[in-house]
Amino acid sequence: MQDDATPATPEETGALIDHILTNYHAMHRADLASLVPLAERVEQVHADDPEAPGGLARALTTLAHEMEDHMAKEEMILFPAMRAGGGAGIEHPIAAMRADHDDHAESIALIRKLTGDLTPPEHACGSWRSLYGGTATLLNELADHIALENDVLFPRFEPAA
């Protein structure tokens, strides 16, 4: 369901790719660039708290590296091929991107485990709450991004089963 804050999903493939680049790739990069140092700070300040999300900064950094590699492959290889109309062999990079999407699930599961499913404890400070809220937003946007590629964009270039 589309909410008023989300731009309409374009029908045309080039416009859809532009939408993904602007609304997802750029946003994920910005979100992760702010969340990793925030996680480091929360972990450091609350190191003695057993409910602190120890290891979260490392997990977010791992996800950031996975996503950066994945987005770079899309931006440099897959999306230009799609803009050019696809062609023979495009199913191979699409299959690799789908596999990357599946791999992201492991990092996401670890992040959810480390954070009690992004639920801060009652005594959490503002930074801690902001970290969990920002991480929840990132994970929700990432799920939308993956669904848009897997369910809308990629099938346009895959042979019908």
Rank of each mutant, 00 (worst) to 15 (best):
A160C: 05
H104E: 09
M82E: 01
A109N: 01
Y24C: 11
L153D: 08
A105Y: 05
H28Q: 12
Q2A: 15
E66N: 09
A109Q: 11
A96R: 07
P93E: 06
A161M: 14
A96F: 08
Q44D: 04
P155V: 01
L148W: 02
A72D: 15
I77C: 06
E141N: 13
H92M: 11
G126Q: 07
V36I: 15
T22H: 12
M1Q: 13
A143I: 01
H25F: 03
A160T: 09
K73P: 01
H46Y: 09
H28T: 13
T6D: 12
A84N: 12
P7W: 03
H92T: 14
H123M: 07
I108L: 10
E91Y: 05
H145A: 12
L78S: 03
E158Q: 13
I17C: 08
R129F: 10
P50Q: 10
A109D: 09
L142M: 13
A52G: 07
D18V: 10
P50S: 08
T9G: 02
T62Q: 13
F154R: 07
W128Q: 02
A59H: 04
M76R: 15
L131A: 04
I90F: 02
D151T: 13
D100K: 09
L131M: 14
A147T: 10
T22E: 14
F79R: 01
D117K: 11
M97T: 03
A33P: 06
V36W: 06
L56N: 05
S107K: 04
D69H: 11
I17S: 03
P159V: 05
I77F: 05
Y132T: 09
I94T: 03
A57D: 02
E66C: 10
L35I: 08
A84W: 03
E158G: 02
T62Y: 03
A52M: 09
H46L: 08
E51R: 15
E122Q: 12
R112K: 13
E11M: 08
E141R: 13
A59W: 05
